[in-house]
Design a protein around this nucleic acid. Structure first.
Lengths: 229, 229
DNA sequence: CAGATGGTTCGATTAGGGTCGAACTATGAA
DNA sequence: TTCATAGTTCGACCCTAATCGAACCATCTG
């Protein structure tokens, strides 16, 4: 009856509405300050402070002090993955927080998941990469093949800089809208920021949606999400 | 500030210690009755009843009535996956419920995760299957190749019977001890029960550990977890 | 039928934790 | 230095939800 790690602590941390709002807000990948998160959660700054201390104590957040500001972000990709998993369960049991509106469709199509591309387009890119042999599933998670490295470099991504980081290069992440994998990890992040730098898409400032321009979407389909079937 | 599914509800369900104990107990994959779960959680049958009703209402459980008994099991593999994810976070933040004891090592080596094999040996089998081309990662999750099907059939598993079930055949599941994938889904379940039927291993009745016999472990290494490197 | 066991419902109690007002510290700007 | 803003700590309040005793249904056994 007492074996394995203590789920209840972590789940209870996520289980409070205010804290859940904060975590969801952090899913966009940006670091947010305490007051921003307070607004996001709809509570005063005092209560936000206690919440954030608890989340930090549970190792769910990464904290950086900058001047008189305190920036919070999700601790690791694993945390984001668990949050996505919970969203999947919640969505399946029919408890959406908002009625399906127009914005919901765009969220399903393309959104940001802890700084990498998720939603339909994220999945299409992942599938295409896999089909073209850029990514292979190996014992140690996902690996970028040499062909993949070449392609990615040609797309304008500095792999050496990514390799210097300690966070894993490639990782799978499971979507809550579809139930399939998309690319996470530092490469996933780099790809999204490259897409933004190319002007193919930009993020909706008020939500997790990623909005592609017409030309951007076409270029995306031509280069990143080539059909392989 | 209000987009996507409502995490807090689900997380709060898991966040109560009693309910978390119940869910953890169900991770072995067996269906348990209400009183068994009450004992597992350390509460009276009345409170267990209310807890189980809530878990069921949150679509986390599957319920079957059999005579005067009520059998509970986890609703889907997704639920198990999220629970494993939470265990990973909890383990990383150092909050193990029990001190690392002798049993802990055996749990890391081989344990049951919602009826399929997890732990080191589960990962080795998964890697081997993948390396031998029995499993490929496709857009629609994991697929068993024809070579894989042939092998599995030769191992004494009736694939037609599995295909008749509506639950997915192959699925990945992430370990909390290692951070790697092992095989879930109905095929994962079938493999484990075949391993038990062959007398290679049997489950520890008091925990999630799976204990292999010497001969069983050798046979496992020879047939299921062949090194491919 | 009676007796026993599994499970549920109700009500009352209680404790834990989220919340905010107010006072306090720390950093930056003028 | 003075003011403003970001964040924390403390105390008090309040409310939800977990818990159990007791009574109640349902199902199986003899």
């Amino acid at each position: 009856m007492k074996e394995g790690p203590d789920i209840a602590r972590v789940a209870a941390l996520i289980g409070d509405p205010a804290r859940a709002n904060m975590l969801t807000a952090l899913m966009v990948g940006k670091a947010l300050t305490a007051t921003e998160l307070a607004a996001e959660a709809g509570v005063t700054s005092q209560t936000a402070s206690t919440h954030l201390a608890k989340l930090d104590g549970g190792n769910l957040l990464r904290v950086r002090k900058q001047g008189r500001h305190k920036y919070f972000s999700l601790a690791t990709d694993d945390v984001a993955a668990v949050l996505e998993g919970l969203m999947g369960l919640a969505a399946k049991s029919g408890h959406l927080r908002t009625r399906t509106g127009p914005r919901d469709a765009s969220l399903r199509k393309a959104r940001v998941c802890y700084n990498h591309l998720a939603g339909d387009m994220g999945i299409r890119m992942f599938d295409s990469f896999h089909g073209r042999g850029f990514l292979v599933l190996e014992r140690e998670a996902l690996r970028l093949t040499s062909e993949g490295a070449e392609f990615v470099a040609g797309f304008g991504i500095d792999l050496d800089k990514l390799a210097a980081q300690k966070s894993p290069l490639c990782k799978e992440c499971l979507d809550w809208s579809a139930r399939r994998s998309h690319l996470a990890g530092s490469l996933g992040r780099a790809l999204l920021s490259r897409i933004e730098a190319l002007g193919w898409a930009k993020r909706d400032p008020d939500s997790r949606a990623v909005i592609f321009t017409q030309r951007g979407e076409a270029a995306f389909a031509r280069q990143l999400a080539v059909a392989t079937v």
